[in-house]
Design a binder for these strands. Structure first.
Lengths: 143, 143
DNA sequence: CTTATAGTCTATCGGATAAATAGATTAATA
DNA sequence: TATTAATCTATTTATCCGATAGACTATAAG
């Protein structure tokens, strides 16, 4: 399961993607619409700012807005930011690899080989899906 | 990532599958070979016993042994036992479903639709792989 | 230049869970 | 009946998750 942070960030980012180029959206507006605890959402958006996906403006008329093109923001990067590895085992993770301390030979280990396939297909799906894809899915299902 | 319990249980069960019908294996033997903390492994095996995958015998000549055919023990049931849902979101989990409290309509939600695909392919891979498959993978890679 | 607005920073909290350990007890075998 | 090995109870330690509180700072409008 994804952490609440990762889950909330997905909903918040899709919200911002829908308002792309419409100017800033209030944290409180996002929090209310997406039913996310406001203070918690603040911390999440702040983190998303540090990786250059969103930016913010203070004061009246301020709020958060997407700065990366929604076509270019993929689910995999958001999930990795908050939850780390996609892989089910450290020894099959690309980004957070750790040597296996249970098996003797990673090359021949059967468990590892299955888990590698799982990881690869999951990463594929998540990195081929952007915020724009999400929005298109919602539009397509309506007609 | 899988919990340590889930990870250890996979290694322990593959070990037992290799000794299927060779009589009981000592906890301490498994612990040593698979580099699992012995006391921790005790608890894990006890849990596996409650779901009818393994059984044990006390006293001299005792230990743990697999009672289910290695062809019939799949990775998905082991992982579910220790870590619960395979899905990344509660709203796409079959076994641990919870209604989404962030989106308004699960039928049209784009995030959910992607996550459902991820879950389905992951569950497919994990439920189509048995302990026997794992062992065959290891044998095949050696020639 | 002042006031209202809205994000930022620091800090902290309870609760749950994870991972591992210790020691006494019970069951099985020879 | 002694030895072996699993079982039970319990406790420990650490870490993280999810959430909240309040003071601070930047912005824009009037």
């Amino acid at each position: 399961m994804l952490s609440k942070k990762a889950q909330y960030s997905l909903y918040a980012l899709v919200h911002l993607a829908k308002e792309y180029k419409n100017g800033p959206v209030l944290i409180s507006k996002i929090a209310e619409d997406e039913k996310i605890p406001k203070k918690f959402l603040e911390a999440i958006l702040l983190e998303l700012k540090t990786i250059g996906i969103v930016n913010s403006r203070k004061g009246k008329g301020g709020g958060y807005y997407l700065i990366k093109n929604p076509e270019k923001v993929t689910l995999v990067e958001i999930i990795r930011k908050f939850d780390g590895a996609i892989a089910l085992l450290p020894c099959v993770s690309d980004m957070y690899y750790e040597q296996c301390r249970n098996c003797n030979n990673e090359e021949t280990c059967g468990i590892r080989s299955v888990m590698k396939e799982v990881r690869d297909t999951t990463v594929n799906m998540l990195s081929n899906t952007s915020l724009a894809d999400i929005i298109r899915r919602e539009e397509n299902v309506l007609h």
